[in-house]
């Protein structure tokens, strides 16, 4: 994150040295764009906070590591698709899952759907892509998740 801050600051300074007018215009564009999505952002963070309270990580661990690999995969995709977990929560969570002996196949289903499918982030996505394309993109994400999980399962010899 530090690099982002340093890089942005340097970029603004260099831009300012070359052309003051353009730099102010760029900042104006940034503020305008941020204003347009600010409320959606905040609303989504609130919903994610509530969902994380309702579905705490202990619940996720219980369902993913229940012994049956197909049920584990199913719940991995369900939880992974609903929640958009930020890295600092998803990382510790997956390391606990690994420690609990959850199969690699279930882990890959969980991490991939976490990243590619987002029901809670749908309100933001549809603003940019429109409802239909946002739905299609999420369905593609789901198909990719299932493909990744199956191939992982084959390579780790977890089924067949």
């Amino acid at each position: 994150m530090k690099y982002l801050h340093i890089f942005t600051l340097l970029a603004v300074i260099i831009s300012f040295l070359f052309n003051r007018k353009k730099t102010f215009l760029a900042l104006k564009v940034a503020v305008k764009k941020m204003k347009a999505v600010f409320l959606t952002f905040m609303g989504m963070l609130l919903i994610i906070s509530v969902v994380l309270y309702i579905v705490p990580d202990t619940t996720i661990i219980k369902y993913l590591g229940n012994g049956n690999i197909w049920m584990g995969n199913f719940f991995a995709i369900v939880f992974g698709s609903i929640t958009l977990l930020p890295g600092f929560i998803a990382f510790p969570l997956t390391s606990i899952l690994l420690f609990k002996g959850v199969p690699y196949m279930v882990l890959s289903a969980f991490t991939t759907s976490l990243m590619m499918v987002g029901i809670l982030t749908f309100p933001l996505e549809k603003k940019y892509l429109g409802v239909r394309v946002a739905v299609v993109r999420n369905v593609i994400g789901l198909i990719i998740t299932i493909s990744v999980a199956l191939v992982t399962g084959v390579f780790y010899g977890e089924f067949l």
Binding site: M1, L4, H5, T8, S15, T23, L25, V29
Partner: peptide, 19 residues
């Protein structure tokens, strides 16, 4: 976390669009 990331990214997007 968002406040530490989002404004900086949008400034970069602004610079990208202008330059």
């Amino acid at each position: 976390t968002m406040i530490l990331i989002i404004p900086f990214v949008f400034v970069l997007i602004g610079l990208f669009e202008v330059w």
